[in-house]
Amino acid sequence: MTSIFSKIIAGELPGRFVWQDDQVVAFLTIAPLRAGHTLVVPRQEIDKWTDLPPELLTRVMTVAQTIGRAVERAFDAPRAGLAIAGLEVPHCHVHVSPMWEMADLDFAHMAPENDAAKLDDAARRLRSALRELGEPAHVPRVD
């Protein structure tokens, strides 16, 4: 069965994309730990990160690092946290989120964000930070 992430990538479901290339996309989660919590997802539907071909894993992590730098810049965070959990959706994805303390990566604190304006603002801030970091070619022009 097609994953929810594949449906978002294909445009069948909405997503607030901040990065798109031929191998990887990044979009905001609708249940963030903190504003700016982003998912970095390979286009290829592979369940576990341990099953990714090495070149694709390298690409996912390179994009995650770039998103992390943008998260720190956009949200004035001292750190960008990174986690690979993978139990909630059977499609590999890396969580990148602003961090001030260890509790900022506690998935028990994930909560649906029902305010579309807050999600839109977080996506706008991340896209702007990515452009400032020299990545305009991969940033969707939606704002």
Rank of each mutant, 00 (worst) to 15 (best):
T29G: 11
D51Y: 11
W100D: 13
A116K: 12
V60P: 05
D47F: 06
L126M: 05
E55R: 11
M99L: 13
P78I: 03
V94T: 14
V94S: 06
M61L: 15
V89R: 10
F17R: 00
S97C: 12
H37F: 09
T2K: 14
E72L: 08
A10S: 14
R125L: 15
D143H: 07
Q65N: 09
M102V: 14
I9N: 03
T62N: 12
D106H: 13
R69W: 11
T38A: 07
T58A: 14
G134S: 04
A129N: 11
R131K: 15
W100L: 08
F75E: 12
G134I: 05
F107P: 11
E132K: 13
A137F: 00
G36W: 03
E45I: 09
V96P: 02
R16L: 13
A35Q: 15
L52N: 09
T62A: 13
V142R: 14
A103L: 12
E88C: 01
R59G: 02
W100N: 15
A83Y: 01
P78G: 07
R127W: 01
D21R: 09
A74K: 10
P98N: 10
Q20I: 06
H93L: 05
F27S: 02
V18D: 06
G68I: 03
A35L: 15
R131E: 14
M102Q: 15
I67L: 06
G36Q: 01
A117F: 13
G15Y: 00
I4C: 02
G11V: 01
E135T: 03
G134E: 02
L126C: 03
A64F: 09
I30G: 00
F27E: 00
R125N: 11
V41F: 02
A10R: 14
D143Q: 01
D104M: 10
Q65S: 10
V18P: 10
I46S: 08
A74Y: 06
H93I: 04
T50P: 03
G36P: 02
H95T: 03
G86C: 11
L56P: 00
T58Y: 06
A35W: 12
E88Y: 09
H93S: 06
M1H: 14
V94H: 05
L133Y: 05
S3F: 12
A103T: 13
H95R: 04
G15M: 05
Q44T: 12
D76W: 06
A74G: 08
L28S: 02
G15A: 11
D106Y: 11
P112N: 10
V18A: 07
N114M: 07
D115F: 06
Q44A: 15
T2Q: 13
M1A: 14
E72C: 15
